[in-house]
Computed example of a mutant assay.
Amino acid sequence: MSYQTDNIFARILRGELPCVKVYEDAHTIAFMDIMPQAEGHLLVIPREGAASLLDLSAEAARETIVVVQKLARAAKQAFDAPGIQVVQMNGSAAGQTVFHCHFHVIPRQEDAPLRAHATEPVPTERLEALAQKVRAALAQT
């Protein structure tokens, strides 16, 4: 699959669209999902343009998974989550809706069902409050 530079995550990386950012470095950016499946749902994306994990360079994959792990630990602490779900989809048949490689980091609570993927937007103010918790947890590590 060829990479389309007009996808929403590419536009976020270029600063054309806003996001509620929780972390960034030279290789990745992490931000709150605007239609979360659970409270604290984060997205981690590589800065490298790749439609899926299968298209991502080995270096970018290594850098990104390290950040996924860092954000998973922070989300677990920030939301006192007994579990963390990490989801990565490749292709529309797998449920991918934005064709820029990305990882979902979803704090999970016992017996709390997930909301449907990409269906219920959350106000930016609420996302910012949740992001503050993640940033505080990151600062403690």
Rank of each mutant, 00 (worst) to 15 (best):
A136K: 07
G49L: 01
I29L: 15
N7T: 12
A60F: 03
V68D: 07
M89K: 14
E110G: 01
C101L: 06
L127N: 11
P107H: 02
A116E: 14
I34D: 10
A78N: 02
Q77E: 15
D55Q: 12
L43M: 14
A136E: 15
L71C: 00
I84L: 07
I45N: 05
L127Y: 06
H102K: 11
L13S: 05
P121C: 01
L42Q: 10
V22H: 03
A131E: 12
A118M: 15
A112Q: 14
A60M: 15
I8K: 13
A51N: 13
I29N: 09
H41R: 00
R108Y: 00
P82D: 04
H117F: 15
H102L: 10
R73D: 15
I65Y: 15
Q109M: 00
Q140Y: 03
G95W: 04
Q96I: 03
S52N: 10
I84H: 08
G15A: 07
A72D: 10
K133H: 06
A112Y: 00
L138F: 00
K133T: 01
S57P: 08
S52W: 03
Q140D: 12
A75F: 04
G83S: 13
M35L: 11
R115W: 09
A72E: 06
R73S: 11
L42W: 02
R73Q: 15
H104C: 01
F103S: 09
S2M: 14
H104S: 02
H104Y: 00
L71D: 04
G83N: 13
I65F: 15
D25M: 04
S57A: 06
I84G: 01
A116N: 11
E125L: 10
Q140L: 13
G49K: 05
L127V: 08
E48I: 01
Y23R: 08
R11G: 05
V22C: 02
A136M: 06
L71R: 00
Y23T: 01
S92Q: 14
M1F: 10
L56W: 09
A61E: 12
L53Y: 14
N7P: 09
G15Q: 11
I84E: 10
H100L: 06
E48P: 08
P82W: 04
T28H: 06
P123Y: 02
Q77T: 14
S57G: 02
I29R: 14
A136F: 03
A93Y: 07
D33H: 02
V122D: 11
A61M: 12
M35T: 12
K21D: 10
T124S: 07
D25I: 01
P113D: 08
A118V: 15
E16V: 03
D111G: 04
T97Y: 14
L42P: 10
F103D: 11
A139Q: 13
V86K: 09
L17N: 08
Q132C: 10
A72P: 06
C101T: 12
G40H: 04
T119W: 01
D55M: 05
L17P: 06
V134N: 02
F99G: 09
A131Y: 04
L138E: 04
H104N: 04
K70D: 04
I65N: 14
P18H: 03
R108K: 08
I106T: 04
A129H: 10
F103R: 06
D6A: 06
T119Q: 13
T97E: 15
